[in-house]
Every structure is written in C-alpha cells, then in structure tokens.
C-alpha cells in the first residue's frame, strides 16, 4: 500500500490565530521528507493536521483517498504519528508498547495478536534493535532506548505514511544518526516518512527533500541543496551556514 500524499491549500487556526495558511505540497511515497523552520512556524501543526488531530481547511489526500473522509481508525492505519517527547505513562514492557502500533488494526490486546500483527511487531523490533529489552519496562529505559521503542511502535503500524515530530530531540549523536538512518531505511521500503527537525545538518544529510516553513507558509521545498540554499537560510532562519559535501552527501553547519 503506497501512494503519494497531496496537500492542497491547508490552513490551520489555533484559538483564532492562523498557524498554517495555504500550504500545498506533493510528497512522493518512498521518500524521506524533513520539515524545518523556526519555532512557531507551524511544523507540528502540519503533522497534526495530516494525522487528523487538529481541525483544518484544505485537502489532504493519500493517493485517491481524501483522508478527512476516513474514520479515525482507517486514518490511523494509513498515518502513523510519533509525537514529540515519547510520552510513556505506565511501566509497560517495551514489547507491549510496540504492539500498540497494531491498535488501528484492531489488535488492542498485546497478548492476543494475530499472525500478521505478531510479525509486524517482531520485524519492527528487529529493525530498531529493541529486542534486547523487549521485556523491560519502558519507563526504566534510557532516552535513546525509549526513542527506539517509540520508533518501533510507529514502524509496527505498517502505515504507508509515517509522521515523526522531532524524533532526534534530546538524543546523543549516535542515537540521532541511528534514528535518522532507520527512518531513511523505512522510506527506502516505500513508506513516505515526514520528520520535523530543528537539526538542519541532519535534514541536509539524511532527507530526500526538505520543506521549509516560515510563519505558517511554505517558504521552500525541494532537495536539501535547493531548499536549504544560503539565501533561504538567511531569510527564514537569519543564519549564515557552512555548506559543503562529504562522501557525496551535503554537509550543513549553521555558523553565524
């Protein structure tokens, strides 16, 4: 199940204030898209609108399907959403948290998973390298381990679109690279992965495309080298950056 995501004229208002206005985007299945922008630019609102968590105007379609016409369950089978911060309130075993990814498929009880659900959970834990602590309580895991469990939960959903809100925040460099690589590997399997990040370097290095938001509007979209061009960085972020290449991949370091 792969399809392109079409967003047309998307607007979101929160408490009467516009946070997104007239955003239009076409995102290909199988690509890894980074969404960047200054604080308050509407990045999280964009993800939440796609996930159907905030009221919005405009069209959001996956392939031929208008997502807003789907039930919450059906939408959840197509869009897997990883919110910021990886909230975990009870000390459930990591495996049960990953199994929650199958919730939209009707698998509410991690002890009674069907064949497909069990396989999806096992596969997600394998690619995120979380099998070793499958039985440990998630609240006792380190930040990096918890981030991988959260990622596994989203992978287990088997959704054609994954939305991740700052998946690398508060992680050390090793875990940042691991998470970005896992997301990119997922995209290579045909999933559309959209990740919000503040790390322009990670975005330039790992993403196939970058969407730059500024004050609720789309400022630029395209391959990292185009979307993160010096004039755009200057205008949107007010920064000068070192831009180069290393091993054929773009390198971007915010400088002054």
């Amino acid at each position: 199940m792969t399809a392109d995501l079409r967003i047309r004229d998307l607007s979101v208002r929160l408490g009467g204030r516009p946070v997104l206005s007239g955003v239009s985007l076409e995102l290909r299945s199988g690509s890894f898209v980074a969404v960047v922008g200054p604080n308050g630019a509407g990045k999280t609102s964009l993800l939440r609108a796609i996930a159907g968590l905030v009221p919005h105007a405009g069209l959001i379609a996956l392939g031929a399907e208008n997502l807003d016409r789907l039930s919450a369950r059906a939408r959840a089978r197509r869009i897997a959403y990883l919110p910021q911060g990886h909230e975990m309130h009870w000390p459930l075993p990591a495996r049960d948290v990953v199994a929650l990814g199958r919730f939209p498929h009707g698998a509410a009880d991690p002890d009674r998973l069907g064949e497909a659900d069990r396989e999806a959970v096992a596969e997600a834990m394998r690619v995120t390298d979380t099998e070793a602590f499958a039985d440990r309580a998630v609240t006792e895991l380190s930040g990096g381990e918890r981030a991988r469990v959260a990622l596994a939960r989203v992978f287990a959903a088997g959704a054609p679109v994954i939305l991740a809100d700052e998946p690398t925040a508060a992680l050390d460099p090793r875990h940042q690279i691991d998470v970005m690589s896992a997301l990119r590997a997922r995209a290579r399997c045909g999933t559309l992965v959209i990740a919000v990040t503040h790390d322009l370097g990670l975005a330039a290095r790992h993403a196939d495309a970058v969407a730059v938001l500024e004050a609720g509007r789309l400022a630029a979209v395209g391959p990292p080298a185009e979307a993160l061009a010096p004039d755009c960085l200057r205008r949107v972020f007010g920064i000068e950056a070192f831009i180069g290449t290393h091993q054929g991949a773009p390198v971007l370091v915010p400088w002054s």
Binding site: I79, E87, W90, L92
Partner: peptide, 11 residues
C-alpha cells in the same frame, strides 16, 4: 499510555 495525542492518532 502513550499520551492523549498518540492515542488519538491510533484512532
């Protein structure tokens, strides 16, 4: 367990 927003996104 995953918070209200994640629960909502699960349907």
């Amino acid at each position: 367990t995953l918070g209200e927003e994640a629960a909502q996104s699960l349907g």
